[in-house]
Amino acid sequence: MLFRDAALAYTARMSFRARHLLGIEHLAPDEITTVLDLAETYADLNRSDAKHSDALSGLTQINMFFEASTRTQASFELAGKRLGADVMNMQMSASSLKKGETLIDTALTLNAMHPDLLVVRHPSSGAVSLLAQKVNCAVLNAGDGRHEHPTQALLDALTIRRAKGRLHRLTIAICGDIAHSRVARSNIHLLGKMENRVRLVGPPTLMPARASEWGVEVSSNMNEGLKDADVVMMLRLQKERMDGAFIPSEREYFHRYGLDGEKLNFAKPDAIVMHPGPMNRGVEIDGTIADDINRSVIQDQVEMGVAVRMAAMDLLARNLRAERNAAPVAV
């Protein structure tokens, strides 16, 4: 009887065991597939008239953004609201940090308000996992420094799977500012786990030290790197994270590394073009490519973003509820 209960609970969790979503690095391939499968159902829900479910009903979701964000925060907010959670947004740069409060104190303060889901973005690598150690709710990393941005990699994966019909044995070129990109790191983990061929393309100054040891191919030439690619993933040039002398100028960067029709011709004829946004048109991507509905899936990425975040929060909430039910009730 006990075993049967446990087995049922396991099925209900659909083999997603994580307590937090801090990164892709520690997720197993079956957990990734679980998120994507559930996200498909939410993608359908989001296209219907009644875009509402009660999966997170009664739960409180707090979005803590220590770094400016428009699209990711909006996406998480919408995802929470569509699942029936009470959602609160906090712009952290404007409040307590200026008063000298430490990250841990901020976390403890929020924790006392009994949130169930905490969505955190922070400019320092590792800050979100530090915070997760101090709270007793589920934490979702919405980007920490240059470390990871797991929901972005998951939404990219879902977009690829829908466009290509599969998420394995694809050649994927990730191009541009790899060094400063958490999106690149999460995608490298995820695409590698799902057994794809990953290429990193960019100027050597924007390529992390010894990137070739990550199990990827590294190139500093776009034509070479894009050759026969199924997916071309462009990254934003992160001017705000640069402290000088990474590239000579934006126009030289666009000439050598910006995605235009000529360079894209080296990829497979049916290759799709992706970008996590916000785009610098004319810097890393030519506007006409970005707007080409036959090649660009950039709008699909945004759409899948909401679905993937709904799925991730739903799964974490299930684990959280299971954990709370299993724990002895405090008197």
Partner: peptide
């Protein structure tokens, strides 16, 4: 490799 993967 380590520092780059950890984003430090």
């Amino acid at each position: 490799k380590f520092a780059a993967l950890k984003g430090l």
